[in-house]
Design a protein around this nucleic acid. Structure first.
Length: 570
RNA sequence: CGGGGCGUAGCGCAGCCUGGUUAGCGCGCCUGCCUUGGGAGCAGGAGGCCGUAGGUUCGAAUCCUACCGCCCCGACCA
């Protein structure tokens, strides 16, 4: 690839819209350009990086026995109605009608389509298992696309679906995919963790996420310092606390005029936030629900959503809270509350706590569950913290930020039952297929790799994902010896199958060095003055800046050696 | 969806408050000279429906209205 004839529009200045490193660098290095909010064109180098990921994913999926297909992007609404998701999926699902007034949507995921396919084609247990995947552009109309390729509305995803005769077989499929995923992310040269996860809108019983560790991650992971436990913090179960069995004291109403916020109430009453219980009100698919958590805790909405089986959970604003309860925010409490009341396990174990008085300007002391109020349910509803013990072994927990790049789910028979995807088992009995689904954010991996590997000068690609393996700088376009040597090396390396970008632009050396750094290509060959002076060219490693000088005849062999080494330990 | 902000040359911005010559600056781009190991220098040049539509005015990039687009924050703690 010749730089002079390629569309690699690098920018010296940072575009105003870019917040995070990967977005900034992808724009500056000329990998992507934005068409509209959350929708990007991949330029030659950006696409090359995407292709690297796709190739690794394909190889490992095929190796694991999955078969590649390609499903439509436009899907009929009726199919989505069969599973109830046309209504349930929410505004992320882009809906439209075609010229015949047929309702349609753009596929954000493909469970319905694949299940429809399999129910038509699979009759017998002899046809199972099946594991099918595609690499496709998905569309999700995100509330707020951001960070370039990290959270776009349109993005490239690999999604796979497994169909098995029973839970045991489905578990094997799941395990196979889990192993394939580990190989994929390892080959990509990424530092990652697999964690227990919530299964979200896709549904299902059991799932793991694969997270690339990076400070700009949108997810928080809890990782045990002692055992293997690792989970997304929205999923991480908080250990059941010891029950306080001190004697119940008498209820006591306290006037707290104007004291609404936890810290203010605590200061006023001379107590600590952990002695207070706050009452939060949410809207769960239109029904108001109150949740009790300790004053210093945070309600984990995902847990709440799962407990209620709700499609959408939203915290109510002050006015809506008053409308639902007749009490201004700040003074809500469980005693005498009129709406459904859910209680965090930690609160259920407490005695004699302080709550709002359910009356303006009053709080109550020495409240106790069971005596003073009843809960519709007691459950784990709060966000875990790093001072909580590991739910598996009790040791210290650590927290890290991560970018979700892969997700594997056990779906069970939810979709197959809803869509009547059944087969006859060996006894002739009609049985729903047991499903699993497995996603990888292909375009997001490129962004995640850059988040994890960059410096102030630009990207630093791992060899396996680099759009080009080598960049060769010709610093003497008008010097016959330099140009001849550069061209010779370019041809020779291409002949060895090396992916190489020849910087043959009529630019000054400084610009070429800057661009080479920016592009993050792992190896750089410089042919310039040192050739005419000392007969040597230079190889520089982008990652650590180390250089080696050698005569031109040795370069090709050395480069091939370096690439092989980088690919094998990646 | 709520709040805030921004739309002026390919990119980054100034001008707008306080309306009035030819709408500026830096980077990039084109031509020439010069230069060639970390984003050089000089000279010349091209490039703008000042987001769109309407209004106010003798006169609008500037004031008003609507629309469109984009960015940021929030949509989690009473």
């Amino acid at each position: 690839m010749r730089f002079s004839r390629s569309l690699i529009p690098t920018l010296k200045e940072t575009p105003a819209e870019a917040e995070v490193a990967s977005h900034r660098l992808l724009l500056r290095a000329g990998f992507i350009r934005k068409l509209t909010a959350g929708i990007y064109t991949y330029l030659p180098l950006g696409l090359a990086a995407i292709r690297k990921v796709e190739t690794i994913v394909r190889e490992e999926m095929n190796r694991a026995g999955a078969q590649e297909i390609l499903m439509p992007m436009v899907q009929p609404a009726d199919l989505w109605r069969e599973t109830g998701r046309y209504e349930k999926y929410g505004p992320e699902l882009l809906r439209f009608v075609d010229r015949h007034e047929r309702e349609s949507c753009l596929g954000p995921t493909h469970e319905e389509v694949i299940t429809d396919l399999l129910r038509r084609e699979v009759r017998s247990y002899r046809d199972l298992p099946q594991n099918l995947y595609q690499i496709q552009t998905k569309f999700r109309d995100e509330i707020r696309p951001r960070f370039g390729l990290m959270r776009g509305r349109e993005f490239i995803m690999k999604d796979a679906y497994s169909f098995d005769v029973d839970d045991v077989a489905a578990g094997e499929s799941y395990q196979q995919m889990f192993e394939a995923y580990k190989r994929i992310f390892t080959r990509c040269g990424l530092e990652f963790r697999s964690v227990l996860a919530d299964s979200g809108t896709i549904g299902g019983s059991y799932s793991h996420e694969f997270m690339v560790l990076a400070d700009t991650g949108e997810d928080t992971l809890v990782i045990c310092s002692a055992c293997e436990y690792a989970a997304n913090s929205e999923k991480a179960e908080v250990a059941i606390p010891a029950t306080d069995d001190s004697p119940m004291l008498d209820l006591q109403k306290v006037e707290t005029p104007g004291k609404r916020k936890v810290p203010v109430v605590c200061e006023f009453m001379g107590i600590e936030p952990h002695e207070l219980v706050k009452t939060m009100v949410f809207d769960a698919d239109g029904e108001p629900v109150a949740v009790l958590v300790r004053g210093d805790r945070t309600v984990q909405e995902v847990k709440l959503k799962n407990l209620l089986g709700a499609a959408d959970i939203e915290m109510l604003d002050d006015k809506a809270v008053f409308d639902a309860t007749g009490v201004p925010t700040g003074y809500l409490g469980p005693v005498g509350i009129k709406i459904k009341l859910l209680v965090d396990r930690e609160v259920a174990a407490m005695r004699n706590f302080v709550t709002g008085g359910n009356e303006k300007n009053y709080h109550i002391k020495s409240v106790n569950m069971g005596r003073d109020f009843e809960a519709a349910a007691v459950a784990d509803l709060r966000q875990i913290t790093d001072s909580d013990p590991c739910p598996a072994c009790g040791a210290q927990l650590g927290m890290k930020e991560g970018i979700e790049v892969g997700h594997v789910f056990k779906l069970g028979t939810g979709y197959s039952t809803a869509m009547k995807a059944v087969f006859q088992d060996s006894n002739g009995k009609e049985t729903p297929m047991v499903m699993g689904c497995y996603g990888i954010g292909v375009s997001r991996i490129v962004a995640a790799a850059i988040e994890q590997n960059h410096d102030e000068n630009g990207m630093i690609f791992p060899m396996a994902l680099a759009p080009m393996q080598v960049v060769l700088l010709n610093l003497g376009l008008k010097d016959e010896q330099i140009t001849e040597t550069a061209e010779l090396l370019y041809t020779e390396l291409q002949g060895k199958g090396v992916e190489i970008l020849l910087d043959d632009r009529d630019e000054r050396p400084g610009s070429k060095f800057k661009d080479a750094d920016l592009l993050g290509i792992p190896l750089r060959i410089t042919v310039g003055k040192s050739l005419t002076k000392n007969g040597v060219v230079e190889i520089r490693h982008r990652k650590d800046g180390t250089t080696e000088e050698l005569v031109p005849e040795q370069v090709t062999a050395r480069i091939v050696e370096l690439i092989d080494a980088a690919m094998s330990n990646g």
